[in-house]
């Protein structure tokens, strides 16, 4: 098993390299010159050229990539073109905010999905199942930004219960687990949770109704296990598949958070990315994209490892 884990982790290295190359290329191939965004429109050409060479943007792409990668390994994520300060501290604080939001949203979504899906699966083809399935389909179909705005209108504007923007009182970006901060988390995390909740509901419903019609469940009933004992078997049989789906959903959450963070002005990587795109802040864009992409890779690794640990049928070799 240890060997398996080591091997899987080693596999990540080429993937991470490929991912960083793709990130780098995408940003550089995309139209729009970052220098244009930095300087005044009437700046003389030689000044533009000087700035370009200061940032190394005049060198061939492979060299730029090599330099970028070399700095990356040393922990230098570059310097923001707009703010003129290192990207890393901002990125760390934004990742923290996104992590809080994505985890809460993900947890809410998965929890709701498992419970609702479990109920629907057990009572398949009853009216309860139909109501739950309908809700799940609606949840999957609703766009994030629309739902976010509707929630803001209801809970912030009309009812004045919850704040509409930011992650803390007075625009502070420092997170704390107290009610003053949690109030800010509720609307964005619920918005973020809706799609994974819908998808997980449908997955779990299918799985549970399939599992409970299996022969081994009849065996368990036949040997007199109580309901709780049978549920344990159902959960462990469903877990590997649910985990795979949840892993994908968490990854989607990072993507979804870009929209949700923008709607709720949540100071996370999503908003950072969004701003960087509009400002053509190349280093920030690269660093943020790379971080999100690596997050996908690591998440997939973790899901695979957990699945392998749970399901004895997956070869550990």
């Amino acid at each position: 098993m240890l060997f398996y884990i080591v091997r899987r982790v080693v596999y990540v290295i080429p993937i991470a390299l490929a991912v960083s190359l793709v990130c780098f290329l995408l940003v550089h191939i995309a139209p729009g010159d970052p220098i244009d965004a930095m300087v005044q429109p009437d700046t003389p050409q030689e000044v533009i050229d000087r700035v370009r060479s200061e940032y190394g943007l005049d060198r061939p792409l492979p060299v730029q990539f090599g330099l970028w990668l070399a700095k990356l390994v040393q922990g230098d994520f570059g310097t923001s073109l707009i703010k003129g300060r290192p990207v890393l501290p901002d990125l760390v604080s934004a990742s923290g905010a996104t992590f809080v939001l994505a985890c809460t949203g993900g947890l809410l979504g998965v929890l709701a999905g498992c419970i609702l899906g479990g109920i629907a699966g057990v009572y398949r083809e009853s009216w309860l199942d139909r109501v739950l399935l309908g809700t799940a389909v609606a949840g999957v179909s609703v766009p994030h930004y629309w739902l976010g705005m509707v929630m803001v209108i209801i809970f912030s504007v009309n009812l004045n219960l919850l704040p509409a923007m930011g992650s803390g009182p007075g625009g502070s970006t420092a997170w704390a687990w107290d009610w003053a901060h949690l109030r800010y988390l509720i609307l964005p995390s619920v918005t973020l949770a809706v799609i994974p909740a819908g998808i997980v509901t449908r997955t779990v419903r299918g799985l549970v109704s399939d599992i409970i019609s299996q022969d081994y469940i009849t065996t368990l009933r036949g040997k007199g296990l109580r309901r709780a004992g049978i549920v344990r078997h159902v959960v462990l049989n469903a877990a590997p598949t649910v985990l795979a789906v949840v892993g994908l959903q968490l990854a989607n959450l990072m993507g979804g958070s870009i929209l949700v963070e923008t709607v709720f002005a949540w100071p996370g990587t999503g908003m950072m990315l969004n701003t960087a795109i509009f400002q053509r802040d190349l280093p920030v864009l690269q660093a943020t994209t790379l971080l999100l992409a690596l997050f996908f890779v690591v998440l997939n690794l973790v899901v695979d490892l957990i699945q392998t640990a749970i399901d004895p049928r997956i070869s550990r070799r």
Binding site: D215, Y216, L220, L225, P312
Partner: peptide, 18 residues
């Protein structure tokens, strides 16, 4: 399972795989 118990045709599917 205590007083009356049962065995099935296909032990592969009648035993929980995990």
């Amino acid at each position: 399972g205590k007083v009356v118990s049962m065995i099935f045709q296909e032990p592969m599917t009648a035993l929980d795989p995990v």
